[in-house]
């Protein structure tokens, strides 16, 4: 099985987009998961709804919303370009943003579940020993949620890797810039004689997804066997 240069570019670009999307969104996902798991505040239901919206909206709607917000004429897009020279639309960074937003609900959900499983009484015990709220989070809640954070990160990575609808709407399908595995497969299916290429990229998708799942299983098993050595 030999890949064309364009396919190799698409594979590497997909990995880069998914990796950047996952790493950049993890801190936000942890913060949002903590807010949803541990805090009561005005507008919590709204935040919860906003986070989960990409899960239920048609991806093309999310992509279009991204385009009118982060596009070069969009309010945020214009500001980003004026202040920092950052352009997202039709760039791979925009694809990473779209992937991150589409994966966000899954990541937040996994982290939130593992944070809710941390006994608040253990956190109270830490506070009686002199740890402030933030230090309780850092020394108790966060380390005890690591399995959920890993699971969320891997799930988010897999989702980001496969993201198609929002990405193609927001950043199109430009070879070498925004063409991911998914949009390259789509391109093949739309052109005569693309079957061989479709098969090659499909196999790559399946292999990457399997590796991600095996890795997450391995992490989970390692943690449950040895505990977290901190």
């Amino acid at each position: 099985m030999t890949f064309t240069d364009a396919e190799i570019t698409a594979i590497l670009l997909s990995l880069r987009i998914a990796l950047v999307a996952t790493l950049a969104s993890i801190p936000f996902a942890i913060a949002v998961a903590w807010l949803l798991a541990r805090r009561d505040f005005w507008g919590k239901a709204v935040l919860n709804g906003l986070v989960h919206l990409p899960l239920v909206l048609p991806p093309v709607v999310t992509g279009y919303l991204l385009l009118i917000t982060f596009g070069r004429r969009g309010p945020v897009g214009e500001m980003l370009e004026a202040c920092c020279g950052v352009v997202l639309s039709f760039r791979w960074t925009g694809a990473a943003l779209a992937a991150a937003i589409m994966a966000f609900p899954l990541t937040v959900r996994a982290i939130r579940l593992s944070m809710e499983a941390v006994d608040p009484r253990t956190e109270a015990a830490a506070s009686t020993l002199g740890a402030s709220g933030f230090l309780v989070f850092l020394t108790i809640t966060l380390p005890l949620s690591i399995p959920g954070i890993l699971a969320g990160a891997i799930l988010g990575f897999a989702k980001a890797l496969g993201e198609f609808g929002a990405t193609i709407t927001f950043v199109s399908n430009i070879p070498g810039e925004t063409q991911t595995i998914a949009s390259a497969i789509y391109g093949y299916t739309q052109s005569p004689g693309g079957e061989a290429g479709t098969w090659r990229l499909m196999i790559v998708s399946i292999v990457i997804a399997m590796i991600a799942l095996l890795l997450s299983e391995l992490c989970a098993r390692r943690i449950s066997r040895r505990g977290l050595d901190l």
Binding site: R121, A124, A125, S127, T128, L129, G130, A131, L144, L228
Partner: peptide, 21 residues
């Protein structure tokens, strides 16, 4: 004054040791 600033020691009925340490 929040609990962490009161300089108390609290022994709970169920221990509440930190499982990851």
């Amino acid at each position: 004054v929040p609990a962490h600033k009161r300089r108390i020691g609290y022994v709970f009925q169920e221990g509440r040791l930190f499982p990851h340490f």
